[in-house]
Design a binder for these strands. Sequence first.
RNA 1: GACCCACUAGCUCAGUCGGUAGAGCACCUGACUUUUAAUCAGGGUGUCGUUGGUUCGAGUCCAACGUGGGUCACCA
Length: 497
Amino acid sequence: MADDKETVVSATEELNEQMQVRRDKMAAIAALGIEPFGRHYEPTHGCGDIVKNFDILENQEVRIAGRILTIRGHGKASFANLLDISGKIQIYLRQDVLGEETYRHLDLLDIGDIVGVEGTVFRTQRGEISVKATKFQFLSKALRPLPEKWHGLKDVETRYRQRYLDLIVNPDVQKTFIIRSKIIQSLRRFLDSKGFLEVETPILHPIAGGAAARPFSTHHNALDMKLYMRIAPELYLKRLIVGGFEKVYEVGRNFRNEGISIKHNPEFTMVELYQAFADYQVVLNLTEQVIATIAQEVIGTTKISYQGQEIDLTPPWDRLTMTEAVKKYSGIDFSAIKTVEAAREVADQLHIAYEPKHGIGAIMNLVFEEMVEEHLIQPTFIIGHPTEISPLAKRNKENPEIADRFEAFIFGREIGNGFSELNDPIDQKNRFLNQVAQRESGDDEAHMMDEDYVTALEYGLPPTGGLGIGIDRVVMFLTDSYSIRDVILFPHMRHKG
RNA sequence: GACCCACUAGCUCAGUCGGUAGAGCACCUGACUUUUAAUCAGGGUGUCGUUGGUUCGAGUCCAACGUGGGUCACCA
């Protein structure tokens, strides 16, 4: 079609000078009988490893490969810096070593190209550990220029949309994602060592349950069936406890169809774990242990600095009931409030908005969110949430209006949530019915009825403690990242306009 | 969803009161055999996010839209 032709032509016209020059060089490389986009190369050493191990490697022959970051030509000799995953090293290229013809190929070399170099490890007069190249070959031509070497890439939009550029030119970014990987490794090591079994449960759910959130919905064509992206793995993991696994965990992605902020990405990573015969106290202790262990293993300390604030992750963390916390920071004693009318009056005085569906417990939770959360800078467990807002948690034995539940807060942000699991199928069914009623009255974050889950409970769920920890937020704290987007490789973005 | 801020060369950024579009790096041409933000000489490569409006004249003022960031709202 004519349209296609025009597309090709206009695409060609869009090449700026630098892109055209690089394409010309690519063609010149091909004209020499060299593939501009190579196939295979076996480095013997990492660039950064050579620098680290110079004592052993001095005067040794090495073969390295990486991306050209800088080139400094000096006539019949040139210097370049080569980057691979292990770090950077300088390469020194001399016409009299490489030969005139090969040396001329350097004219076709650009910053950003990926090349292989063989040569001898040595130290220059200025003390820079370098490789004196005896051979040099093109591995992949870069057809676009890299961002600037000194200021790097700062444009936030480009950094997120083209994360590969961010990773190439901003070394701290790579560091953050290496730490992220180590955090998850450390988490798995910890749980494995405690006898937990790692499992995988569905991400496509016929019923989205386990949390109060709006799901993404999708459709299975062959089955002509509506499906949801999971908002939490909770109900499946507890089915596994019914099935006889006594300690399970899953590290995985949850999807929630909600707003985006520095603390929220539509897909985010959580670990959820369940331990049979345990209660919320057991998993509460586990929470502070696992976070402290990860911090110690990955960054070498449990005393961290986040956004200029010193935070001590060393157990034990503070423990405070929600009622106590609300009293401490708002002056309101909800244990003395016995009617919804009284609770509403308090909320009105504090100018906190509530809805008709909110009972005493939900209103206390609103006060908590509004007046308490921001003060919980040092790691703090808030214990004893209203049962009203905890439809999957077991009631407290002494006070059925509160649940055996906790949330862990750091820097005013919730990083974990755990409870004694509701294992009474009759109570669970009634709570679901309650949620369904709320749903029908317009709350699209209320739970859907999950009959099969209730059936599973009817076969017997042992007393169980369950815990969920937001991994992204943990990574944020341990890498001192301001935004969740800085700990997610490809954060969600709109279509480019 | 509301409000605020940003968008200028490949990258990082200037751009005065509305009067011919600028710098550094990168790039191009040349010199240079231990440099390292190499240096030296020469060269500006642009749909000023988009579309309208005001004006003799708009990168600059106004409006709408787009994208990003932030605050709030919403929310594990």
